[in-house]
Write a protein that binds this DNA or RNA. Structure first.
Length: 464
DNA sequence: CGATTTTGACCTGCGC
DNA sequence: GCGCAGGTCAAAATCG
């Protein structure tokens, strides 16, 4: 998100001819310091204050569309009436004021985005740490089964209070409290649901052996989870004419394949920024719309990332972590009907989808649609993929497992549809968190901005 | 000349 | 077991 530098500069330098108190002023060095100009303007530009004063009186409007009118010629020529000059001055002063206001607003928004990003990263770090901590501490407890699938807030409420009282994450606390309250709601009804279908807790991609394990969580499972995090994928759909979106990382192509059902080849890249970095990505154009570039990231970087890459990396990493955080063997992975209370909440569709048919959990961030267009998502994705409109990736593995189970247990046939509804409802509960959405959107925006054809020259990607 | 891309061969998992 | 498709490897080609 590179900001344009000084608007004054860009405006001023792009206007070779300007009006100064109604007089023509050619903006080059000769005119700038010429004696007659000084006489006309009765100003001596010796310091910044004077320069600023001059700026306030220079009409930088190009007025490109009405240049040839006789009236304007007269203005550009011998000078205009005092009324017209004052009018222009007022107009320009108003525009300048608006410009300053917009700059201030822009700066404020940038600060807010930075703050949200910082909080998001801090929250994510805490989440990972707390997950590890709690799993080690409670590894032997059978009651780990009582952990709800919505395990974003792994820390207890007391822990949250302690952490957030430090003042760094006060805004996040409300979010966590919201999640916590949802957790408790789910917990109260969880037992019944689990009795109905205990095996639903285990997503397919956590391997079938997991289903035979006890609900307790041990170190082996933690390591397995970490390996799954590495395998979790985050896919980004974005419109781009370039062959790759710019994510700030350096990639080395190691393969290309023609995928079935898609005339466009799929390219395979490895991160070449760090030696032995396990991160890989696949780039392929959509078969339905070849202007859409689908980039799938896998793994976590093992090296320091440049600032330009942090947004993407943190987003994909967080998505992958969250993907797994809701699918631990110890978590029941169940979606209780209570969460349907949130089913009508907005902003639950289109921003992200999740392909449950993939061998590994894959969350898709769809940047090709507007957030309000709720119906196109399902149209764009093959229905057989069971792609759900999700921002949170937590639920799809469970959904897939459910769909699989539904084929195994015919008596549960009606559950699939209701489960899909439940998934969407749960998604709505998560996606209405404006802070996570803001952080996600900040990262996504940076990606979109950098993927613009004009800016691809700044891209570090060395593909093609 | 080192880094990167290309591309055919090979490996692996999955469904039949 | 066989075939298919996805993913990876590695030697050759290309690039800067």
């Amino acid at each position: 998100m590179e900001e344009p530098t000084s608007n004054h500069d860009s405006v001023t330098h792009s206007s070779p001819i300007m009006l100064f108190d109604g007089k023509t002023l050619v903006m080059d060095e000769m005119d700038f310091f010429a004696d007659n100009n000084n006489k006309k303007n009765k100003n001596v530009f010796h310091d910044d204050e004077m320069l600023h004063q001059m700026e306030l009186h220079v009409d930088t409007s190009l007025d490109l569309l009405t240049k040839s009118s006789p009236t304007d010629r007269s203005i550009m020529g011998e000078g205009s009436s005092e009324a017209k000059g004052n009018k222009r001055d007022d107009k320009f002063a108003a525009m300048l004021a608006e410009l300053h206001h917009m700059n201030a607003e822009n700066q404020r928004l940038r600060d807010e985005v930075d703050q949200v990003n910082d909080k998001y990263h801090a929250l994510h770090d805490q989440l990972v740490k707390q997950m590890e901590k709690q799993r080690k501490n409670e590894g032997k407890k059978v009651d780990m089964i009582s952990r709800p699938f919505l395990d974003i807030g792994v820390a207890t409420k007391e822990e949250n209070s302690q952490q957030y009282s430090k003042g760094k994450l006060q805004e996040s606390k409300s979010t966590m409290d919201m999640i916590e309250s949802k957790k408790q709601k789910i917990c109260t009804n969880r037992e019944v649901t689990e009795l109905e279908a205990p095996e639903k807790a285990i997503p397919r991609w956590l391997s079938n052996e997991v289903t035979t394990r006890s609900s307790s969580f041990n170190v082996d499972e933690a390591s397995e989870t970490m390996s799954m995090i590495k395998k979790a994928r985050v896919s980004v759909r974005a419109r781009s004419v370039s062959s790759m979106i710019s994510d700030g990382c350096q990639w080395r192509k190691y393969g290309q394949k023609m995928a079935k059902g898609n005339p466009c080849p799929r390219a395979y890249y490895r991160c070449s920024m760090g030696t032995g970095c396990p991160v890989r990505k696949q780039v392929q154009r959509s078969a339905e719309d070849q202007s859409v570039l689908i980039t799938t990231y896998e793994g976590q970087h093992s090296h320091v990332l440049p600032p330009a890459a942090k947004a993407m990396a943190s987003t994909t990493s967080a998505a992958a972590s969250m993907l797994l955080s809701g699918s631990m063997p110890s978590s029941d992975g169940l979606l209780h009907p209570n969460i349907l209370e949130s089913a009508t909440l907005p902003f639950s569709h289109n921003l992200a989808t999740l392909s449950a048919s993939a061998p590994f959990p894959t969350i898709t961030l769809d940047l090709t649609q507007t957030p309000t267009n709720n119906n196109t998502s399902s149209q764009q994705h093959p229905p057989q993929d069971y792609q759900l409109s999700l921002l949170s990736p937590l639920f799809a593995p469970n959904f897939f497992h459910q769909t699989k189970l539904s084929t195994l247990h015919a008596s549960q046939g009606t559950e699939t549809a209701s489960f899909a509804d439940t998934v969407n409802a749960a998604t709505a509960a998560i996606t209405t968190d404006p802070k996570f959405s803001a952080a996600l959107m900040a990262a996504i925006t940076s990606i979109i901005g950098s993927s613009h054809p004009v800016e691809t020259q700044h891209c570090n990607n060395k593909q093609e």
